[in-house]
Design a protein around this nucleic acid. Structure first.
Lengths: 270, 270
DNA sequence: CCATGGAAAAGGTATGACAAATATAAGTTT
DNA sequence: AAACTTATATTTGTCATACCTTTTCCATGG
């Protein structure tokens, strides 16, 4: 005969507390901008110590679920996230997967092609003058000869975001930021030749024209061609990054001895 | 004359430590499954106290970037996330946005229509027998008359996921899990009538047939019609959820007095 | 050879104190 | 009286230290 033992709690207290508060937020028992009890009170309610409560709060803060402020009338507040903060969270998570080589170049290029051509079609239907202005501003930036590589890539990302923004579809924007943003760290490492740059800028210009003319199919076709041209560049970038991950050194956190000069932190890893 | 003061650090130490370690992981200076120094050593390296280090580690743990284990040969390890864990993170973030009513029903329906028809086309091209089996398994579940509402909705989600899986495109899967998964909490609240259920199951069956026959366009058209039918249900669900959020009570964290019976926690919110 | 038990190592929790920020109230000066 | 300054209280942020719990591994004894 087997005895029913007490179910032993195997998750840490801070995790349980975090889950508990998180559930309260998700269920709507805690509304936006509502103030939580202060940490000492939370500790009393949950019957744990303050450090434990704080660890729980940090977990939630990492998910942008809460924000804290010192002082009286300060405290911890429910901080329901904007599209931007969620987008950043997603970007961080995706960047890892891509950086690890979880996806092949073919997959990445295909997914971008399919989704961005879709975005082109919707953008052509819904774009406003503001959207067109945003796109053209980026094209102007990209035509600057003095622009750094990072600057060019950042502008490229902003252009593609602008196209997605023009669809005027929130969920779609959210989804596509995932794919677009997560290429920043990769493409940043690539030296974009001057010739390539000009070609990209001209592609962007043509796409913008088509969207301005409400020609969704035309814009989609141009976008497809544009991304096709990026395939080679991406292949190069991913290969470089993979190589770097392969040669991971042993002791990456060696403290850089100096220390005294820097105000406080910012060192700690070699 | 204005003096250049030392740049005051405005972010908390635990945040800085977390960022520092996070950067090391993202840069590849810390490889997967690599062990970090123990907490006391980290505290020494960063010149902060152990609780501060622990708060930083909890931040990272919340992002599934690290995992911890007790005992000797335990410690903190880099835990680069799988597609599933990233997907879960994204789901949590998006669920909030949707729950808050950040998106309109039109936006949601349109985004699902556009992306899922896209998935149908790719699925028809790339599906394997396994994918078809997965879809048909869900259809079989949905035809069970005794299934609970939650069970039906969960199966619905799994079916749509199966379609996306059949595209064999990682980035696309990641993007679409975002949208599909985040509707679970909403659709779960809706009582699906028996008639509706049967209609959905039959839609799923026809879509599966078209994908099996490599008929991408046909599958896409069927999917579009299927989602069109869901528009009304979604409208109802979102209205209900919005109402619940509006009537947020004041004191949602009131401790349930009992306490002695529960092993340790699990209470704390009424 | 296997099982049992006990150290040791590492994360988990608790306590208590102090530091820093900041809103509010009180007091002082103009 | 108004405006500025100062005190003060509140709340998060940080620190130091101790102890508990889990897990590994080795030594010891059967």
């Amino acid at each position: 005969m087997t005895i029913e033992y007490d179910r032993i709690v195997r998750t840490s207290l801070s995790r349980q507390v975090a889950e508990s508060i998180r559930a309260a937020i998700l269920d709507g028992r805690l509304g936006v901008d509502q103030r939580l009890p202060d940490e000492i009170e939370l500790a009393r309610r949950f019957k744990v110590s303050r450090p434990t409560v704080r660890e729980a709060l940090k977990r939630l803060a990492a998910q942008n679920l809460i924000r804290s402020q010192r002082g009286p009338s300060g405290g911890t507040f429910v901080d329901l996230p904007s599209l931007e903060s969620v987008s950043r969270t997603i970007e961080g998570a995706t960047t890892l997967l891509i950086g690890m080589g979880a996806f092949s170049v073919e997959e990445i290029v295909l997914s971008r092609m399919e989704t961005e051509t879709l975005a082109c079609r919707l953008a052509a239907a819904n774009r406003t003058q503001r959207d067109l202005d945003a796109m053209e501003a980026e094209i102007a930036v990209e035509r600057e000869a003095t622009l750094s590589d990072e600057g060019f890539c950042a502008s490229d990302v902003r252009f593609h975001r602008a196209v997605v923004d023009a669809t005027a579809n929130g969920p779609l924007k959210l989804m596509m930021y995932t794919v677009i943003e997560s290429f920043i760290p990769i493409t940043n490492m690539i030296i974009v030749e001057d010739r390539e740059r000009r070609r990209a800028a001209e592609s962007h210009a043509r796409i913008t024209q088509a969207i301005a003319a409400r020609d969704g199919e035309g814009a989609a076709a141009l976008m497809r061609r544009h991304l096709e041209g990026m395939r080679g560049i991406l292949e190069q970038a991913l290969a470089q990054r993979a190589a770097r991950f392969a040669s991971t050194t042993e002791d990456a956190l060696t403290a850089s001895g100096a220390g005294a000069s820097t105000p406080r932190l910012l060192d700690g890893l070699g």
